[in-house]
Amino acid sequence: MKQKFDIIHSTCVPLPLENVDTDQIIPARFLKATDKEGFGENLFRDWRYNPDGTKRDFVLNDPTYGGEILVAGKNFGCGSSREHAAWAIAGYGFRVVVSSFFADIHKQNELNNFVLPVVVSEDFLQEIFATIAENPKAMLTIDVPNQLITNDTTGRSEHFELNGYKKYCLMNAYDDIDFLLANRDKIEAFEKVSSKG
């Protein structure tokens, strides 16, 4: 899953629903795997398929839409902390999720799996939805080094938040455990001072 980020230029899959919870992203009955593989097939499982396995009328089943960017309504990823939701999004092939608001744990889970959550203003989000509705092949540009998201059709751009540490991680395929292991001496020193460990 570790992959270096730079500039992503892609068409999008729109999901203009609010409060999309992690039970919808990946239902609990698919959480039984003991590895991280294969979750993409079950991304939004119950919205994609009927119980008999036939396809439902859902954006992921519509060949009109595709790309590495998922654009979703506000409060994306609320509910359970299951990282399987991030594995499903990454496994399906998304590298960026754009929304006006993310639930905390899920946002962190995406970052830890090299999926970039991009927070935009509600106004810009609605503009992006409108652009995609008009032209399903419309492109967005996500410039990670400059922390800039651009709607190629309208030319509108917004700066997005990403702390310097995580930006370094994403651009260099470096993860938190690499960092923590490099800082063991600080942990031992902390334990000594605070009588822990």
Binding site: S81, I105, Q108, N109, Y165, D175, L180, G197
Partner: peptide, 22 residues
């Protein structure tokens, strides 16, 4: 607080977690 599996791995490995202060 609840965490993801990558963070479980962090704590297993170091008894620490990287977290922005809420």
């Amino acid at each position: 607080f609840g965490i993801g599996t990558s963070e479980v791995e962090m704590v297993l490995a170091s008894q620490c977690i990287l977290q922005a202060k809420p």
